[in-house]
Each structure stands twice: as structure tokens, then as C-alpha cells.
Amino acid sequence: MSDAALIPARLTPTPVRTIAAKDIRDALRDRFILIVTAFLGLAALVALVTGAIALRSDVATYEAAKATLLALGKSADAIKAPEFYPLRLLRGAIEQIEIIGAAIAILIGYRSAASERGRQTLALMLTRPMRRWQFVAGKALAGIGLLAGGLALVLGGLTLVLHFMSGIGLGADDLLRIAVVWGVAVAYTACFFLVSFILSLHMKQPSHALLVAFAVWLTLVLIAPQIGDTLDPDNQVAGGVFKQLNIAKPDQVEIMKGFATFETVRGGIEQASVTKHFERFTFAVLGIKATYAGMPLGPILTEMRGNLIWIFLTALGLIAIALALPLNPDRLAKA
């Protein structure tokens, strides 16, 4: 029996793992990717710190008022303890992941494919004893791994800042919510990575693929949610149109019936954007959307499972496409 036979299969380096490890090392040496990721982290941090400082002063004001009342021998019940939701401060970070995170994922996907083109490496790999799907699986694993690592760094850093700067410590439930958001953010950015990777691997010109990938990004991330938001009457007037106009609930329903088609179109556009699903889900989990603030995680997850399923199915569908498309070593021989 050879040595190799004694090592459990789990530990022997498979082509998928070998390729993934190579790709991660390769990408980490790309300063451009590192700089853009640092930029995302920084932008999110600035948004967070500003919010945290404001929250901290609110907390301090409340504490001071309470202390004054108590010192005067009065009951502090007179001022109701305001509800502080530190996780809501992650709103800026979520929006940045939505936009910049997706763009970084596109760059990583492009890089992943471009690094194999015009250098005969695919020809070399495919003349080694491995299967073609293992090449794609290894590359996808590396890209998603990079996104998972980058997002863990960014969200981990933000969590620390939030914990120490907001004046309100984070509890286990908060950490769990952030972990859930991390997982969904990985799946969300993976969609963009995969779109860009597939296009860059299969289109004649990888640079054209990059353009198409960014056109998709523009549509899903910027345009579609805008259309949705602009068309939402609630978004046009602070506090909601109906509330401002003092229209009673039954009348509201009547009015909205007339807008049924309009609503369907708006809904359809929103449904098509994986970004919107990501935003709805994370805003609920983090309590950024007021209706969900203070609601336990379980019911939120149940209510939001549609968004969750949509994001993961999109990612899985794209993985399936990446694995199913036949590789053309000749095309890849050209840069």
C-alpha cells in the first residue's frame, strides 16, 4: 500500500483545491484588488464611525438626563428609554457592499478568467490527469473564497468598531445577525463574480466581457432599484404619501387598486434585481427598515425566506452554468 492510500481522501490535494489555492495566491498579489477592497472597507468605516459617534452622544444625553432625574430624587420613568439599534448603523456598509462589493466581485471574476487566457495555462492544466469541470470548480471556489474572506474582514472590522464606539455593546443575537448578513453578502457578490467570470471565460474578447458585466451591474445595482424606488409613492413624500394626505386606510386600498398594473410593473422590476432582494433581506435582519426593528431573528428569516432563496438560487444557477459550458482551449489560448 502506498503512502498516498493511507492519507484520507479529504486531505489529499485535489485538483479543485490546488487550483483554488493557486488562484487565491495569484489574486492576493494583485495590488489593484487589494486597494479597491481597502477602499470599500474605508468607505464603510467612515459611514459607520460617523453614525456611531452620533448614537453615542444620543446614548450619553439619555444617560445624563436619567442621572439628573435620579439625582433630583425623581423617577426616571418620566423619560422613556429610547430604543437604540446599533445594527442600524450598518446601513451605509450594506449599501456599499451592494454597489462597490458587487463591482469588486466583477473585477475578481474578470481577473480569474483573464489570468488563464493567452498564456497556455489551460492547455497545460487540461493535459494533466484532471477533469474539465474541476478547473471551473477550482476557479469558482477561489473567487467565492476571496469574496468570503474580504467580506469577513470588512464586516468583522465594522463589528468591532460598532461594539466599541456606539456606547452600546453588541450581544450574541447581534453577532448572529451580522453572520447571517455576511453569508448572504457572500452569495450576493458571488452572483456578480460568476457573471463576470463566465463572460470573461467564454466571450471572444475578455475586455468586452468586462463591459457587459458592468452593464449588468449598472442595470441591477443602480438602475433597477432606482426605478423601483422612484415609482414607489411612499418614497416620494417623507413619511408616505397617504399619511401626508391624511387618507384613510379603506380609501388607500381603493386608490391602490387603480394602480394595480403600475404596482405589478414596479414589483416585476424589483423582483428582477438580485440587489433589491439583498437589500430587503439585510435591511430586515439588521432592523434598518423600521418595521423589523426589535423583531426577533426567527420570524424575520421566515418572512424574508423568499429573498434568501432568490439570491441563493441565482448563485447556484450561475455555478451550474459555469460548470456546464464547454471549455474551449483554443479560445483561451488567445488573450
Binding site: R119, Q120, R128
Partner: peptide, 25 residues
């Protein structure tokens, strides 16, 4: 197999490139 105009991975060292292909083999 040595293809025409073989280039390998620019960001990796010669040894890293070779260890990669050795593993695949």
C-alpha cells in the same frame, strides 16, 4: 506538453508555478 509560447502565471514565482503543476500531475 510544452505548448508554443508557454507563459504561465506572471504573479507567481517559477517555483510556485512548478509546484502548482506538480500537484496537478
Amino acid at each position: 506538453y510544452v505548448p508554443e509560447n508557454v507563459r504561465l502565471y506572471d504573479t507567481l514565482t517559477a517555483a510556485e508555478n512548478l509546484v502548482f503543476f506538480a500537484r496537478l500531475s
